[in-house]
Design a protein around this nucleic acid. Structure first.
Lengths: 226, 226, 226, 226
DNA sequence: CATGAATGAGGTTTCATTCAT
DNA sequence: GATGAATGAAACCTCATTCAT
């Protein structure tokens, strides 16, 4: 009863989907469910239904809810790391490189709301799942080092200020994008103004870029360093 | 933390009426529980135990889990608004006012991790609870208007750039502080470096201040505006 | 702090209602609540709210939910017995007396749906409450004896058949009215025809009268008696 | 009570699939529990215990208490409709057909006290459950049409009066049986005379038959039609 | 006579997980 | 690889009732 990816399979071909397909389907369904409801709010039942499989199959592939969540997290991190790798920032001049990086971050968050939601959920659990996954901890973002190079190049050619910590900068870029998108519901509820129209989104990206470049290109008087 | 009507009260330990006391105790316990576990993860049982009251009493005062959460949110927002009002930013010069505001935001988030957690949880629910509370929607932050005044004063005396949207600025200040603190667990898990030591915290505040002032005081070349 | 129904009361007159009034108010509220929801479905909270009194007051007057129900039953039976006594059936001729009695029963049920509902509820409990109340058991309907007299008069003057058991007749008259009214919801749901329009109600009364008189005035061939 | 597909089955005691068995067991248990305690008084715990299954299984099959009640109602109605269909009233002469129908109704109510109890409970809820079940509303009793035919045949052969509404007649036959049986507890509590001895039951059936036939066979003077 | 605060027991329902096939 | 049936623990919530005043 094992699936046969050989000629025989082509003949019979009764089953519409094979093992890998099911696993992937579950993972995708879990990602949506976890993103929409958080870890505690997500329901195994809902995941099974979304994936179109039996609940038990979920346990067959991913022993427990926690481990399924870890798998989803790993997948999500792998996705963003892959996308980051596709950027080639070394070539261009520092200002342009920063523009590209900021825009990339913004767009990735915008197109992957599940990433924000999963991060939210995971932070609420004090990164308990993430700590359990050796794989994610190894997926240390290469962006930090790229950023260090860019910042250093900018400092040397006189376009950027000195004393910029790449890690702080990375967190700031992320934060400027993340907060706006992740908190969009509460913000628009309070300000009574939709933050997700195309115009508003463009405006936000322009603002973030201005903030980051404004910071990098300004002199940075001493008294600002504490 | 409780107001003391007179010295005598402090001595004899006359508590406010039990009813008020219980209600407040429940609210405080709920805030902690919701902050630690999110809305879905929070347990009414745990809240009752924390507050030292019978579970039913919670329903006596707050009809349902949802409404209790709304009450907690309202309290939290009321707290931050009260703190904001205590700042007097109009007097000082624009640069100093911004420094004060950034530092205030940073410290409030640092000292009230429950605020961040509740916000996280609420965003996961797409602000469903917040939308239900007319009271919170009215508590529109006066900071936006204060910020508008400061930015305008800075522009007129030549210290700040033109074209700064106070709402964008507000969101950016919040985001720069929020992301670092809220995501501290996942960030430190990934970077293998604790972000919560006193030194690290000071460093972050300095960085945020530098970013915000760097942005405000730099010229802002046209091409940054899209 | 005791109420003073004396001159003093007339002077102060702060309280809008006195003790008896509260008790009565509770009883009335309980009747409605029990009638609408049955014994198990009725809520003490709801009764207190309906009566506009504190829940504890209910326990002050009627030690427990069961006893409150018994009190309501007693009141309801007392009402119908009082109404029955107001009928004077002895005078008129037998046929007319039966007409009057049937119409009275019909109208009383129609105007007192709570009586039907309470009876329903009580039967579901196998008359447990009723059996506890000596007062109700003594309130044996005088109608049975009146009916016996009417039936006997009718038999003697040749208008009614012989061998009519007054108890069976009483139960039949009640049943013909009761079933239609008490089951009106299920019946109209199934037959898709409203049974409570004025025309429908008149028609039913005419039918019941015809059935009862048809039975009483027909010869009654032997084979009908088993 | 279960159908036996073959002798072999009876020997080896091959039970129907466990799933069906459980579902049926739950339904049977629920019927008893609801009949004994009404909807509000019935306990899911008790049903689970009676059925010998886990409480959760009840929700697995019937989502909620309400829906379980609807299922029970549907079953009960299906039972009585099936029994009605087994009667063949068309053949016999009108008087005999009426006798048969009255006796059938009486016996069905007598042997299925749960039907009366469920009806009681459902009426207390204003047929809320029944209205929700399309299936029951479609199970419109075919008896009405059969009755119409019988009554018409009787009218034509001169044995029955004219102007008999089959629906009214149906309701009357039901009411004459229903009230006696359903209210037997309160009635015997008040009259201090047991109504459920075999002799008493026979007597009641004889009386009902006499009432119905008395009505149908009497002339029905105009003034009775109001 | 009247009240608001508080409770313990138990109700329906949910959920992650396992059993048997 | 895949399934439907079944479960125990625990969740939210309800209810009649009592305590203290």
């Amino acid at each position: 009863m094992l699936p046969m990816p050989s000629r025989a399979a082509a003949v019979v071909e009764i089953r519409p989907r094979d093992a890998d397909r099911s696993r992937e389907e579950i993972l995708r369904a879990a990602m949506t469910e976890f993103a929409e409801n958080g870890f505690a709010g997500a329901r195994i039942d809902a995941i099974a239904e979304r994936a179109g499989v039996n609940k038990k199959l979920i346990y067959y592939y991913f022993a427990a809810k926690d481990e399924l969540f870890v798998a989803v997290l790993e997948q999500t991190y792998a996705d963003i790391r892959a996308a980051e790798q596709a950027l080639h920032l070394e070539a261009s001049d520092p200002v342009q490189a920063i523009r590209t990086l900021v825009a990339f971050t913004w767009r990735h968050y915008l197109e992957h709301p599940e990433f924000l939601a999963l991060l939210n959920s995971e932070n609420m659990h004090r990164a308990g799942h993430l700590k359990r996954s050796g794989r994610i901890r190894q997926m240390n973002s290469p962006l930090i080092e790229t950023l260090a190079t860019i910042v250093e190049r900018g400092r040397r050619d006189g376009s950027f200020r000195a004393g910029v910590d790449p890690l702080q900068l990375y967190v700031s870029i992320a934060g400027l994008a993340y907060f706006y998108l992740s908190n969009n519901h509460t913000l628009s509820a309070i300000f009574g103004r939709s933050l997700m129209t195309p115009a508003a989104l463009d405006e936000r990206l322009a603002h973030i870029t201005a903030v980051v470049l404004g910071y990098l290109t300004s002199r940075g008087p001493q008294e600002e360093h504490d």
